[in-house]
Write a protein that binds this DNA or RNA. Structure first.
Length: 368
DNA sequence: TCTGGGGTCCTTCCGCCA
DNA sequence: TCTGTGGCGGAAGGACCC
């Protein structure tokens, strides 16, 4: 989906269409309806506190702000951009709608989060057919039908990449965003993918990207041309092999159509850094609240967990975790709280804390 | 004034046990 | 009885993604 959260917001605030808008921050900054019926929106310049942009509209991106950027920093670059709070309830509803719309055309779907899916078109009727002189006319028509269905069901646009595998499709889907349809075969690899920066490969992040840059590898084509020995020397056998495969468009991962959750968690970043000694009561109350939410989430979704974990982030942004595996799976707040307390005893609290989280892993269904 | 919240997967280390 | 080996689960951290 294109700029998903922002696009959902524009459906209810159509007067913002074409303007720079960013989504993020806390529950403050709700639009206010004025006496004359028009809405008054918060501006980035009004924002104070911790938080990042989750989504920016394309006009906002043109001003140099993008998802992941701190809101205070973004406010310097685009002070007049409209700021809207996140409304996950609503995004989840639109997520369900667009996935259902896709499933009407092509039922084999892998969920990749709230705004992204992989679709297997192999057995969709007509997808293998040529149309006139176009050998891919059939699959092109199927992809277009999916786009039309999504638009009809949600009012939103999406971008689709049609290729032989997941790795190439992910890149292809971003080549013509927003509202794009890109079809690539293995033969298009050298012309369309090799000129792109390595960071466009799903799985090469900031660290691997920087390491590749260090050895003079900037594009996917340069990566494809790399000596195996050089890559193995810098990345180890396993990751080197994966890098080479990715650069050559090789990916045989099957579609993962059913996924059970592995863990569930709740975490929060404080308005100000807290001291374990000085702000003990406040920290305890926050932990109780997080544990309560987590227990409620587990019970609502019908899961028990065996491994309780805590997560702390200190004022220097260093993160530590501590785990404890219980004798019996549980979803009870009291048991989780007790285990979290045991975990906390194993942490050195000489620095101030900016984030606290609780996690449950080793999940199983509650119905025995 | 830096840097959210919710996840997955992989690697490494360590202790336990056969 | 001593030593080595290897599997395995748990714990911790890190990279990455949406």
């Amino acid at each position: 989906m294109d700029a998903f959260y922002a696009s959902v917001e524009l459906l209810r605030y159509p007067e913002l269409k074409g303007q720079p808008v960013v989504i993020g921050g806390g529950r403050r900054h709700q639009p206010q309806v004025q006496p004359d019926g028009t809405r008054r929106f918060a501006r980035l310049a009004d924002y104070k506190g911790r938080g990042v942009i989750t989504t920016a509209t394309y006009p906002a991106r043109d001003l140099g702000v993008h998802s992941g950027m701190g809101l205070m920093k973004a406010a310097v670059r685009a002070p007049d951009a409209v700021l809207l709070p996140t409304d996950f309830e609503r995004y989840r509803e639109y997520s369900r709608r667009f996935k259902a719309a896709v499933a009407e055309v092509a039922p084999r779907i892998e969920d990749r989060g709230i705004d992204e899916i992989y679709i297997d078109l192999t057995d969709v009727p007509g997808a293998q057919d040529a149309v006139g002189h176009d050998p891919f006319g059939g699959v092109r028509a199927v992809a277009q039908e999916i786009r039309n269905n999504v638009k009809r069901a949600t009012g939103l646009t999406c971008s689709i990449g049609v290729t032989p595998n997941k790795l190439m499709s992910k890149i292809a889907s971003e080549l013509d965003k927003p509202d794009g349809l890109t079809l690539l075969t293995q033969d298009d690899l050298a012309v369309r993918l090799w000129p792109l920066p390595v960071r466009r490969i799903n799985g090469i992040g900031p660290k691997a990207g920087a390491k590749l840059e260090d050895i003079g590898v900037r594009t996917i084509g340069q990566l494809a041309a790399c000596e195996a020995a050089l890559l193995i020397g810098h990345f180890g056998r396993s990751y080197a092999r994966w890098l080479a495969d990715a650069a050559n468009g090789r990916d045989d991962r099957p579609l993962a159509t059913s996924g059970e959750p592995v863990s569930m968690s709740r975490e929060t970043t404080f308005d100000r850094d807290l001291s374990a000694h000085h702000d003990r009561a406040e920290l305890g109350a926050i932990l109780d609240e997080l544990v309560g939410h987590l227990a409620h989430d587990l019970q609502r979704k019908g899961y028990l967990g065996k491994t309780v974990g805590i997560k702390l982030r200190f004022d220097d942004f260093r993160t530590v975790t501590r785990d404890l595996t219980l004798a019996e799976p549980t979803a009870e707040a009291d048991a989780i709280r007790h285990a979290a307390g045991q975990c906390l005893k194993r942490v050195d609290f000489s620095r101030r804390i900016r984030l606290l989280g609780v996690r449950m892993a080793s999940l199983r269904h509650a119905g025995r």
